[in-house]
Design a protein around this nucleic acid. Structure first.
Length: 478
RNA sequence: GCCGGUUUGGCGGAGAAGCUUACGCGACAGACUGCAGAUCUGUUUUACCUGGGUGCAAAUCCCAGAGCCGGCUCCA
């Protein structure tokens, strides 16, 4: 039974989707005004793993993650860079997609952009006004928090406490300082759209309400994002969706991932203590970065430092070695023929144990470190048993199960270097041929013509033609 | 002020009453080995913030306290 921690109830709940066998899930994507940092990457990786596990469990998952491509930050940055907001968005969306691929994120079902849904946003704002929860001042539209009695359900913030908050905007035009902007009137030089209240643009939280409803319908099952979005973003989203569309609980399960810290301090753009995902991915192997990002339980803080990444690199190496051991054993058995051995049964038992253990851990609010521990327990058993296994079927099963589970965690054994199935770059292929020729030259020096001819003939059969010159051998691919 | 989270061995990090050798990384010793790599075995002698309490039994439950981190309208 799958249990998930729901921010709404502050407790683990049994996961039961609203519609049998399918999960509708929305994860707050990036505001595309800057390079994503490694903390953003954690969020992406965590929800990707959650999504993949749900799919593993047999659910059909509709996974929506948006690009917020219009807001204050977008406008400011576009002005700084001297480009249009649209150009800015394209630039950083492209960057996001590169990082997504490097982190092995499975593409979302849809990646909608806020600016594609301006009409829907206007429609929602209008509904909110009609229901009596919004008011218009000089072309701005505000949400009237004092009218919305359940404001604070998610963040568990009582209204009075909010008023005491340190950073509430002081804006004379708001009836209540807590009120949030649903629609902002046009200012000179800003992108704007026509609306019943004059030219303007959407407020900060409108787009997620609208796109969630548009693509998934209300209510839907899972809404994810970083802990810092709990308030105000998600709180406001609930207020907007619930009031506009008459849905008491727009989202059944709210999932929030913990922060990534640097020296135990929250990493954030406003503090300036951040690494971009780009820097990290350029410096370390992508799969190791992904492994690092899911090496802690998703709700706990995760500290970023070189030691942590190095540990992930070592762990990944151990995983690969184990896989290579299994693949190597398959090669040997294919050459020599299999037989039945005592170890076959034992390895099969270890596979079953892995399956059971992995699911048990992941069923417990996606306990990825626990799940990894199960993988390593299996690897230890496999390393001992594999050299004694006589039957390729069980080895192939081990590979299949291992690959499937690692893929849920975002580690793709088929990708990049490593493994006989991985494909090989032309640089590596060349180096390999050079190596063979080096060996052949050694044989020629020793007048071991049989060996030299064997290498040349066999390469020829593969389609690689070797020719000797007085300065050394050459080769070309036919 | 209000609301959350967190504190586990040299490090990272699970576990939420009894028994987990958790797991990984690191270190040391050994086995295997033409060399290298990989792998295996053992060790790293009672790791659970503090003080109370309830249990036959507490890292785990309760109370109090301390440290650290975060939210309270920029943020994943």
């Amino acid at each position: 039974m799958l249990k998930v921690y729901n921010t709404l109830s502050r407790s683990k709940e049994e996961f039961v989707p609203l519609v049998e066998n399918q999960v509708r899930m929305y994860v707050c994507g990036p505001t595309v005004y800057d390079y994503p940092h490694i903390g953003n990457a954690r969020s992406f990786a965590v929800f990707d793993t959650i999504r993949r596990y749900l799919e593993y469990k047999g659910y059909r998952v509709f996974y929506v993650t948006n690009f917020t491509d219009i807001d204050d930050k977008m406008i400011n940055r576009a002005n700084e860079e001297g480009i249009s907001v649209q150009e800015l968005a394209s630039k950083y969306i492209a960057e996001y997609l590169v990082i997504a691929r490097q982190l092995n994120l499975k593409p979302a079902t849809v990646n909608p952009r806020a600016t594609e849904h301006i009409d829907d946003i206007i429609d929602m704002v209008q509904r909110i006004i009609e229901k009596g929860y919004g008011y218009v001042v000089d072309g701005d539209v505000y949400f009237d928090v004092s009218e919305w009695k359940s404001y604070g359900v998610l963040a568990k913030l009582a209204s009075e406490d909010l008023e005491a908050g340190a950073r509430v905007d002081i804006d004379e035009r708001k009836q209540d300082p807590r009120d949030l902007a649903l629609w902002k009137a046009e200012k000179p030089g800003e992108p704007s759209w026509d609306s019943p209240w004059g030219k303007g643009r959407p407020g900060w939280h409108a787009e997620c309400s609208v796109m969630g409803k548009y693509y998934l319908g209300l209510p839907f099952d899972i809404h994810g994002g970083g802990q810092d979005l709990t308030f105000p973003h998600h709180e406001n989203e609930i207020a907007q969706s619930a009031s506009a569309y008459d849905v008491e609980t727009p989202v059944k399960y709210w999932l929030h991932n913990g922060f990534l810290t640097i020296d135990s301090e929250k990493m954030s753009k406003s503090e300036g203590n951040f690494f971009t995902a780009r820097e990290v991915l350029d410096n370390y192997e992508h799969q190791a970065v992904r492994l690092y990002l899911i090496s802690g339980q998703y709700r706990q803080p995760l500290d970023y430092n070189a030691k942590a990444i190095n540990q992930a690199i070592q762990s990944l190496e151990r995983i690969r070695n184990a896989v290579d051991t299994i693949r190597g054993r398959i090669l040997i058995l294919e050459r020599s023929g299999g037989r039945v051995a005592e170890a076959d049964k034992k390895l099969k038992e270890a596979i079953d144990k892995l399956q059971e253990g992995f699911e048990k851990e992941m069923d417990d609010d996606f306990n990825t470190p626990g799940a990894l521990a199960e993988v390593f327990t299996f690897i230890k058993a496999s390393n001992t048993l594999t050299p004694k296994v006589g039957n390729t079927a069980v080895l192939r099963e081990a590979l299949a199960v291992l690959s499937e589970f690692l893929m849920i965690l975002g580690i793709d054994l088929q990708a990049e270097e490593g493994g006989q199935d991985a494909g090989i770059s032309s640089a590596k292929l060349s180096a390999t041929i050079e190596l063979l020729l080096e060996i052949r030259e050694q044989a020629r020096k020793n007048k071991d013509w049989a060996m030299a001819d064997l290498i040349r003939d066999r390469l020829g059969e593969i389609g690689i033609e070797v020719a000797d010159t007085k300065d050394g051998p050459t080769w070309k691919v036919n």
